[in-house]
Structures are given as structure tokens and as C-alpha cells.
């Protein structure tokens, strides 16, 4: 669905990517994690065609994003972290925007708007940031775009809305669609994503699906100092040490992505070595 080869990108002299490679497949929800300023949004904007690579190539849905052809733009929807909506009513906005997307599903849009509890007759500029975001999420999903790029989608959403967000995203994925979610709020998407990608210093330093992570790593709490000593990563907590261990006994555990993220950014080599075996 998306293939990025040897991507080089810089803002003036500040190099952001130098030789980044990436492949996104349909039917998968990707979580793109990384510190602030590591290039998560820049990567999304490169895939969306809003920034052009200095070197290397990007192919999305068989097209070159930078050409920004309408047939590409209607099939790739980027939900930016920061946005501006016009000062018109929600229905009017939808009426004039939806026809640009030939796969747009009006019933689905109305359903999401109801689920998110967005006032359907309100003017967009009178809505809160969170409500505006919910409108855009609803619209993004209703476009039926095969590739959705969501930049910090849970920013500004309240607790209930975050839960609704996870629900609608989980229901929207199918074998023809790929969703890439960039966030630094790992907990918000932990139960949602199929695959985690960690970006650091302009490179993808970790790229694994959650099933493989659960089969190779064991996440557990323990008061046992010996176990803690063997851990690949540990954090002290009230419930004992939170540990990441090698899953040699094939035990079941649910990956704690926040902890995994911290562990990998500290020592990517060790973790990648485990997954290469």
C-alpha cells in the first residue's frame, strides 16, 4: 500500500530523515511512536504528498504522493494535528466537501457524528477543538479512503471520546484499508494497533506486530530481585517492578507499549537483536 525507500528529508540544514525505509500493508493499524521533533508528522506529510523527499522515493496506492493528483487525494486522508475549519454549519460543510470523495458514505458519517455526540446543526467554528476533531475523524472514516494518516488523533479528546475513537477505528479497518496513527500518547492506542513502529533520529528503529512482540517478550510485575536483574528493562512501581523479559517459556502477557517504547529508545540494538532471531 505504501512503500518508502531510502527517504531523505530535511528542513533547510536540519536533517530529519536520512535513508528511511518503510512498508505499510493493507488491513493493518500502525502506531507510529516517537519523541517530539523526531519526524512523525513530517513522515505523514511526506506520505500525504505535502512535503517532497530530497532523495529516495515514496509510492502510495501505486502513485507518487507529491503529484497530489485528485485520484490520489481522495484515497489518502491526512487528519492533521492542527487544523482550521470554516465558519459554516456542519451539514453545509459536509454537503460541499463530501462530493469530492467518490467513495464517501453519508450514512456512515451521520452515524459517527451521532456516536461522537457532535451537535449536527452547530457551526464548525462554534465547536470545541475536541468536537471539531471528532467531526474530522468522522469525515475521514466516511471517505472510505484506503489509506488514513492520523496525526495525534486523540489530542483534545476527552476520556469518553477516546474510547469512542478506539471503537470506531477498530470497526473501520478492513483488508483494503491501512491506518497509520502517529502519537506520543501510547496508552490511547495501545488496544487498537496491530503493529508498532518507533521512529528515532530519522530512522525506524523498531517495527514489529503486537503478536510477535507478545511471543518474544514477557511483560510482568514482580517483586523478585533475581527476575528484575534478568529484565531487559525495568521500572519501579507500587505493584512491584514492571519488567520486560525474554519470553522463553511462551507465557501470555499483554505488551505495555509505553514501557516498550521507553525500553527501545534506550537500547534499540538489544531489542532488535531479539526480534531478528
Amino acid at each position: 500500500m505504501v512503500t518508502i525507500q531510502d527517504l531523505h528529508f530535511s528542513y533547510g540544514r536540519r536533517q530529519v530523515f536520512s535513508g528511511l525505509n518503510l512498508e505499510l500493508k493493507p488491513g493493518v493499524i500502525y502506531g507510529l511512536l516517537g519523541r517530539n521533533g523526531t519526524g512523525k508528522s513530517t513522515l505523514l506529510r511526506n506520505i500525504g504528498g505535502f512535503l517532497f523527499p530530497r532523495q529516495g522515493s515514496i509510492t502510495a496506492l501505486g502513485l507518487t504522493p507529491g503529484k497530489r493528483q485528485p485520484s490520489f487525494l481522495e484515497r489518502v486522508y491526512l487528519l492533521p494535528e492542527d487544523f482550521q475549519l470554516p465558519s459554516i454549519g456542519l451539514q453545509q460543510w459536509n454537503t460541499h466537501l463530501a462530493p469530492f470523495y467518490s467513495l464517501f458514505d453519508q450514512n456512515r458519517f451521520d452515524r459517527y457524528i451521532r456516536e461522537f455526540d457532535v451537535p449536527p446543526t452547530a457551526r464548525l467554528t462554534e465547536m470545541s477543538y475536541g468536537q471539531q476533531k471528532k467531526v474530522l475523524i468522522s469525515f475521514a472514516l466516511a471517505t472510505n479512503a484506503p489509506l488514513l494518516l492520523l496525526d495525534e488523533p486523540t489530542n483534545g479528546l476527552d476520556i469518553v471520546s477516546k474510547s469512542q475513537f478506539r471503537k470506531v477505528i477498530a470497526g473501520a479497518i478492513d483488508e483494503n484499508r491501512s491506518i497509520l496513527i502517529s502519537t506520543h500518547q501510547v496508552k490511547d492506542i495501545e488496544q487498537l494497533i496491530d503493529r508498532i513502529m518507533i521512529i528515532d533520529e530519522g530512522r525506524i528503529v523498531f517495527d514489529q506486530d503486537l503478536e510477535t512482540i507478545a511471543s518474544k517478550l514477557l511483560f510482568k510485575f514482580s517483586f523478585d530481585p533475581e527476575e528484575a536483574a534478568q529484565a531487559l528493562y525495568r521500572e519501579a512501581s507500587l505493584k512491584g517492578n514492571a519488567l520486560i523479559l525474554r519470553n522463553t517459556e511462551h507465557e501470555d502477557s499483554r505488551p505495555d507499549l509505553e514501557m516498550l517504547y521507553k525500553a527501545i529508545t534506550l537500547d534499540p540494538k538489544t531489542f532488535n537483536a531479539i526480534f531478528r532471531r
Binding site: R45, G48, G49, F50, R68, Q69, P70, S71, L73, E74, Y77, L78, P80, F83, Q84, L97, F100, Y101
Partner: peptide, 9 residues
């Protein structure tokens, strides 16, 4: 982004 992402040439 809003302007450029609109599916029109």
C-alpha cells in the same frame, strides 16, 4: 494542509 489535501487538481 486543508487546502492542498482537497481532492481537486
Amino acid at each position: 494542509i486543508g487546502f492542498l489535501s482537497l481532492p481537486a487538481s
